[in-house]
Nucleic acid binder design. Structure first.
Length: 593
RNA sequence: GGCCUGGUGGCUCAGCUGGUUAGAGCACCGCCCUGUCACGGCGGGGGUCGUGGGUUCGAAUCCCAUUCAGGUCGCCA
């Protein structure tokens, strides 16, 4: 039977009570984590978002009536307890923040009874996601998720205060927008007033924040909810939050500077981690060549080495044909893994095939300097020696090689490098390596659409010295774009924007837009820019990913209160769902089966 | 859309190459217990083995289909 809390006021959260309070009468409220009934003595661990506190019930203090109530307590009952803080007369519990004290109850009220939860409310849950997400409101009671969401809140609050102190204004932009079908798929929202017309939910506030610059709000930020109708991953949700910002009268350096200081502040205040400034920087080309990735994890080495020149004339047909078709041959050195059993090497070959490789060549150098290799027999001793020297191979090392078109070689070895580091435990979660990636290509060629598409977005400024290439060789143009990466994860990205209409027109031309189609989509932006636009640049973080790394979680769902599952549905609320025919009629929408 | 992994009491799992009545730990329920904190003791309840079909004398186990969840490739300006 639920009782009222009338006349009671919570004085402390559970772990706010300490041995400073011994002798005081306090009122605590929370959930029953655990009850231990010893007959005429009952212990209850009370839980709230701060942690646990032990309550003792005995008939002397809480009287017969209160004791009878305490006997009925079960997991997850919500109770209020008035009692005196005492030093524990039993053993101290070292594992508990409040392990030296307990509350001897005078009064107990059962504010709410509870069904037995379908899974244990505890840290480091072993319960499968399916069940946790169906009962997300219970899952969110678990201490690890509570810690994550509190950390997330801290990041949001600190970000606001830091950016405000740097002269940024927090301005909201619409979430019912015009669809601009470039890039990810839009979530569409039908319009009742304009049947057959649709809004799109924003993939980012990109155009609006550029307009704000045009309007003179020279430093803007927003914690913006964004939507992309694409398939999910461990680090990707269909709706997510960006820390979005844009600055006027700045260049790349200014944006990077303020963001390095923002990140340093967050890591210092939230994690007590000092990161050294400025962050390391690397061009996109260097990142690809050395790490096979545009978001390299630089917590460990195992860098890629190009051996194309050394095998140009070799007899190994796999290498030879890759080179003949314009590809490359590159390798990595997995230190000390020469003794890897054949089965594990085969598993690596399968792994490589899984990311698109046709195969994987290996060369193990055993302790005595003998080779065990899938291709050594096709090579001369001289060629082998040169390869080993290039990869700095020593006895005991395992060298892995991929040969294919260049982009695939990067992908395969980049993935393999990470996999090997994972297997060898080289990735320490409490080590934070920030890295700026710069000098991105402005365009990448889309095989599917048979044209160049913007690697970042169509408003990204080309590097001045590459401007002449826009018309002659778009693939070579580099962008004034920058990504900020942390431990192999892209946590944010941005660019200097085009504010000159002649460059913007050339950009659209290179992308294959006609003037008409460009105006159809982005006319209001182009028009706005005719009325006086400042040079501007910006950056946006994936807040969820950033918090995921700070919380040392492997899955973005663990830092989002109510996430979606792989097929973008919500297991708890069952969204998306069919709607009433009446709603469809109003929207003039019919469903084709 | 492709590939990989998994689905067995509320939770986590075992159940080998098909063979009595499908097990364990935790949780749950009842009784006992004054210093527990993974409390302890005694007793108890709870399963259409994801779903559908097939093979077989016999299926949790083998086959096919399907569904749900996770990971990943494609996709994510």
């Amino acid at each position: 039977m639920a009782e009222s809390m009338k006349g009671l006021k919570r004085t402390h959260r559970c772990t706010e009570v300490s041995n400073q309070n011994i002798g005081e009468v306090v009122t605590v409220m929370g959930w029953v984590q655990k009850r231990r009934n010893l007959g005429s003595l009952i212990f209850v661990d009370l839980r709230d978002r701060s942690g646990l506190l032990q309550i003792v019930f005995d008939t002397d203090s809480v009287k017969e009536e209160g004791f009878a109530k305490a006997e009925t307590l079960r997991s997850e009952f919500v109770i209020a307890v008035v009692g005196r803080v005492e030093a524990r007369s039993g053993a101290i519990n070292q594992a508990m923040i409040t392990g030296e004290i307990e509350i001897r109850a005078f009064e107990i009220r059962i504010l709410s009874e509870a069904l037995t939860p379908p899974f244990p409310i505890e840290e480091h849950s072993q319960t499968k996601d399916e069940v946790r997400l169906k009962y997300r409101y219970l899952d969110l009671r678990r201490p690890d998720l509570q810690r994550n969401l509190m950390l997330r809140s801290q990041v949001a609050v600190l970000t606001r205060s830091f950016l405000a102190s740097e002269g940024f204004l927090e301005i909201e932009t619409p979430t019912l927008c015009k669809s601009t079908p470039e890039g990810a798929r839009d979530y569409l929202v039908p319009s009742r007033i304009h049947p057959g017309n649709f809004y799109a939910l924003p993939q980012s506030p990109q155009i609006f924040k550029q307009l704000l610059m045009c309007s003179g709000y020279d430093r803007y930020f927003q914690l913006a909810r964004c939507y992309r109708d694409e398939d999910l991953r461990a680090d990707r949700q269909p709706e997510f939050t960006q820390i979005d910002m844009e600055l006027s009268f700045v260049d790349m350096e200014d944006v990077m500077d303020v963001n390095e200081r923002l990140l340093a502040t967050l890591f210092r205040e939230v994690l007590q981690v000092e990161v050294s400034l400025p962050f390391q920087r690397m061009s996109w080309q260097e990142a690809m060549d050395r790490f096979g990735s545009d978001k390299p994890d630089i917590r460990f080495g195992m860098e890629l080495k190009n051996i194309s020149d050394l095998v140009a004339n070799c007899e190994f047909s796999v290498f030879k044909s890759a080179l003949e078709q314009g590809g490359t041959v590159r390798g990595i050195n997995v230190n000390g893994q020469a003794a890897m059993p054949r089965k594990k090497i085969d598993a690596l070959v399968d792994f490589a095939k899984g990311v698109g490789a046709k195969g994987l060549a290996y060369l193990a150098i055993d302790k005595d300097g003998n080779y065990k290799s899938s291709f050594a027999k096709f090579m001369t001793e001289e060629e082998l020696e040169k390869i080993i020297t290039r990869l700095e191979g020593k006895p005991g090392d395992l060298l892995l090689f991929a040969a294919d078109k260049n982009s695939l070689v990067y992908t395969v070895l980049g993935a393999l490098r990470l996999e090997m580091a994972k297997q060898q435990g080289l990735l320490k979660k409490d080590e934070y390596k920030f890295l700026w990636i710069t000098d991105f290509p402005l365009f990448e060629f889309s095989e599917e659409e048979n044209r160049y598409v913007a690697m970042h977005h169509p408003f990204t400024m080309p590097m001045e010295e590459d401007l002449p290439l826009l018309e002659t060789d778009p693939g070579k143009v580099r962008a004034k774009a920058y990504d900020i990466t942390l431990n192999g994860v892209e946590i944010g990205g941005g660019s200097v924007r085009i504010y000159q209409s002649d460059i913007q027109e050339k950009m659209f031309e290179a992308l294959g837009f006609t003037k008409e189609s460009a105006y159809e989509r982005f006319g209001f932006l182009l028009q706005a820019f005719q009325y006086g636009v400042p040079p501007h640049a910006g950056l946006a973080y994936g807040l969820d990913r950033l918090v995921m790394l700070m919380a040392q979680e492997e899955n973005i769902r663990d830092v989002i209160a109510f996430p979606k599952v792989k097929d973008a549905s919500c297991l708890m609320s069952k969204a998306p769902d069919i709607v009433d025919q009446k709603q469809l009629d109003e929207l003039k929408i019919s469903i084709i089966e």
